[in-house]
């Protein structure tokens, strides 16, 4: 039974690694801009979990997108059942969210305050959203190529905008504030995520049922 899921666990660790790498890149890139304003090392370290969340969110979005295009046909061609592919994909995403969140917590523990804990739901929500969003993008790319491409362009513009903002020496504090502001809408965000997740799961299930393998 577990055999059918080994593939997905392998990708879980790889996604975490990619997310960490993306976080490191952003950290280095922005570190250049921050150094001037944030002299204290502890302040920079406190920002690390934010990068990790953002890095993982990007990695998750990309890999969830690719899953529909590459991994589903690949595992089906190697003799996976569609059920294993569906559940494996689900477990993989939940696993990645859990591992990333745990890593963030571990990084935060030394400097944690009451406010930090309030941010936790925001991070989790961002990660969960990337899972559904990436998967929905993959689904739409397959059915309507332009829609998928459009979603990708918007996403990349957002991420690029963030990085550009940092590079231009923007205050990282804005993101901390933004996260805090988002914290106030956690309930609405949660409901939105539930809706998108439900849509994604239903569509993914349907797509897998009719999926044809072409390599």
């Amino acid at each position: 039974m577990a055999r059918g899921y080994r593939f997905w666990f392998r990708y879980l660790w790889q996604t975490v690694a990619v997310g960490a790498a993306a976080a490191a890149v952003m950290f280095l890139l922005t570190g250049v801009g921050i150094n001037i304003r944030w002299v204290q090392i502890s302040g920079v370290l406190a920002g690390l979990p934010y990068y990790l969340v953002l890095g993982s969110a990007i990695a998750l979005t990309m890999i969830c997108f690719t899953t529909h295009l590459v991994y589903f046909p690949l595992v089906l061609s190697l003799g996976s059942t569609r059920r294993e592919a569906f559940l494996g994909f689900l477990l993989y995403r939940l696993g990645t969210v859990v591992v990333t969140t745990a890593l963030c917590l571990a990084l935060l523990l030394p400097t944690a305050t009451g406010e930090t804990w309030q941010l936790l739901p925001v991070w989790v929500l961002i990660l969960l959203f990337s899972c559904s969003l990436g998967s929905l993008m993959g689904l739409s790319y397959q059915k309507l190529k332009f829609l998928g491409i459009l979603m990708m362009v918007v996403l990349f513009a957002l991420v690029g905008g963030c990085v550009g903002f940092f590079l231009a020496g923007g205050e990282a504090q804005i993101f901390v504030d933004l996260f805090a502001a988002l914290g106030r809408y956690v309930v609405i965000g949660g409901i939105l995520w539930l809706l998108s997740a439900a849509l994604d799961l239903a569509l993914t299930h349907l797509a897998l049922k009719h999926r044809e393998v072409k390599l």
Binding site: V70, P73, S77, K214, L215
Partner: peptide
């Protein structure tokens, strides 16, 4: 064991 057709844009 399918024929591997990697010229397509599917990423395998």
């Amino acid at each position: 064991s399918r024929e591997l057709n990697v010229s397509q844009e599917n990423g395998v």
